[in-house]
């Protein structure tokens, strides 16, 4: 187990390497990959600080860390109920929060999409129907990426519709250049038009959210 004293920090480097080497290490730390180098040096201190001996042997070792793009839906509500409108024949509404984590490559990107995988009822049956365009949604601001915004999007049973677009070189948590929070979130405002034509009854639909990252 490496002690903290072996971790590369400007202070430790100065104490252990002296002014000349400290300058070299400082440049690396301040480079784009400085943070990664810091992790490697903490995990494998012998690469950086080999034991001092009269006859020093230098051994090179290749360390490979594959940092892949990731997308994770931390939480989506398991079940929600659209609320009856307070003003008759306006809209059934519900606001839900989607939590997610993402990491994208400099040339990649990501997205959160939604698709209605089970409709409330068949179009033309008298009940609400996503296939008939009855369900729409808007989005609040996303704290990583760009949300679908305030213009209503019509949910679909056949295609995935946009919720959040995640840019290249994006990452969750830890602060700049990543997001400040360790889990990102976006709110969605679901709305279903309450028209007199709807047949009374209880209905259920299934929404599937997908996060993808490259």
């Amino acid at each position: 187990m490496a002690s903290d004293a072996n971790c590369i920090t400007p202070g430790n480097a100065a104490r252990q390497l002296g002014p000349k080497r400290t300058e070299s290490v400082r440049r690396i730390i301040q480079s784009r990959f400085g943070a990664i180098c810091g992790i490697v040096c903490c995990a494998f201190p012998w690469l950086v600080f080999p034991a001092k001996s009269a006859a020093q042997t230098v051994v090179t070792q290749t360390v490979t860390i594959q940092v892949s793009p990731l997308g994770n839906l931390s939480s989506v509500p398991a079940s929600v109920t659209l609320a009856q409108p307070t003003i008759p024949f306006t809209s059934f509404t519900k606001t839900i929060t989607i939590s997610y984590q993402a990491r994208t490559t400099p040339s990649g990107g990501g997205a959160i999409t939604m698709q209605v995988t089970t409709d409330f009822s068949a179009a033309g049956s008298g009940g609400p129907s996503v296939a008939n365009g009855d369900l729409t949604y808007t989005c609040g601001a996303a704290d990583l990426g760009t949300s679908c915004g305030s213009s209503p999007i019509t949910a679909s049973t056949t295609t995935q519709t946009n919720v959040v677009q995640i840019p290249s070189s994006a990452c969750t948590g830890g602060g700049t250049p990543c997001s400040s929070t360790n889990t990102n979130s976006v709110t969605m405002n679901l709305s279903l038009a309450d028209t007199p034509a709807l047949t009374s009854g209880t209905y259920t639909a299934a929404l599937t959210f997908t996060i993808s990252s490259t």
């Binding site: 989506v76 079940s79 490259t214």
Partner: peptide
Amino acid sequence: GAVAFGQSNTGNTTLNLTV
């Protein structure tokens, strides 16, 4: 070593409505 691979996962929500 940072080779890009696409990745995705899903989550499901049941949406209830009483008319």
